[in-house]
């Protein structure tokens, strides 16, 4: 079987197109690359959607924690504490069993499927981590900026939207880039934590460990996985770098370049 044939059969295997049967023996390098790359579709799906939706929730929570009334501030604090203080792995398990319960009484039955349930957990998780980042940035917006805005007659929502929030984003962006990278890495946990991979449609790590289990040779599938993820990381850094340039475009002098200096935040 030629490599092109393999690509046609398996490139979309993880979302249910192409050959049903996974290869069982005589694994070729081409099959490794194709299937693991196919699984990467799920990682990208989880990562992008969680990041997009989580971004808005995170901003709301950060603002709530900073400006809200006492009860709202407490609520936001608890949300952040629970999702940042416990392992994502446990959160996945717990959420899955909660969704199972809900399914038994007929509420939101689709949440037991990974593409909905795990996505929800990831959204909430990244919202909590990002909220903490945005809150920190919100607190370090220079006082002078805010006072100048007031002097120009900006108040309330207008001041927040036009002055405070853009500065917050600008300050938070390097840390947020880091969070995005970690989020994509965290998506590999989904199919190892209760959520079933229906018809063996898993993510990149799922297929990598499938190969490693079958061939008992970890030295081929995992480096391929690493290759894909390093590529993904570079793409994220590139895209976030573009946004960073736009956020900093009004500043005199060279834009501070977004360097990948992985500070641990997760």
């Amino acid at each position: 079987m030629s490599c092109w044939q393999t690509v046609q059969d398996y490139a979309l295997r993880s979302i249910g197109y192409g050959e049903r049967q996974l290869p069982k023996t005589d694994f070729t390098l081409c099959e490794h690359f194709t299937l693991i790359g196919s699984g990467l579709i799920w990682n990208v799906y989880f990562g992008i959607l969680a990041l997009l939706i989580g971004f808005f929730i995170a901003n709301a929570i950060a603002a709530g924690k900073a400006y809200g009334p006492r009860w709202l501030r407490k609520l936001c604090d608890w949300f952040i504490l629970i999702f940042r203080g416990s392992p994502l792995f446990i959160q996945f398990f717990l959420a899955y069993f909660i969704f199972l319960r809900l399914k038994q009484v007929g509420i939101l039955p689709f949440l037991t499927a990974a593409q909905a349930g795990a996505l929800l957990v990831l959204i909430l998780n990244t919202a909590a981590y990002s909220a903490q980042i945005f809150y920190g940035a919100l607190m370090s917006v220079p006082k002078g900026d805010v006072e100048a805005a007031s002097a120009y007659g900006f108040t309330g929502w207008n001041r927040f939207r036009r002055i405070v929030w853009p500065t917050t984003l600008r300050l938070a962006w390097p840390a947020y880039t880091n969070e995005a990278i970690f989020l994509f890495h965290a998506t590999t946990l989904v199919f190892f934590s209760g959520f079933p991979a229906w018809q063996q449609r898993g993510d990149a790590l799922y297929y990598a460990s499938y190969f490693a289990d079958k061939t008992f040779n970890p030295f081929v599938p995992y480096p391929i996985l690493a290759f894909y993820f390093i590529l993904l990381t570079l793409v994220i850094i590139g895209l976030f770098g573009l946004v960073n340039r736009r956020l900093n475009r009004h500043l005199p002098g060279a834009t501070p370049k977004l360097r990948y200096r992985p500070q641990l935040i997760r």
Binding site: L205, L225, F229
Partner: peptide
């Protein structure tokens, strides 16, 4: 640059 569980699964074998 790579997810840590990938390393866990790799190293243990």
């Amino acid at each position: 640059g790579v997810p840590d569980i990938a390393f866990f699964l790799f190293f243990v074998i």
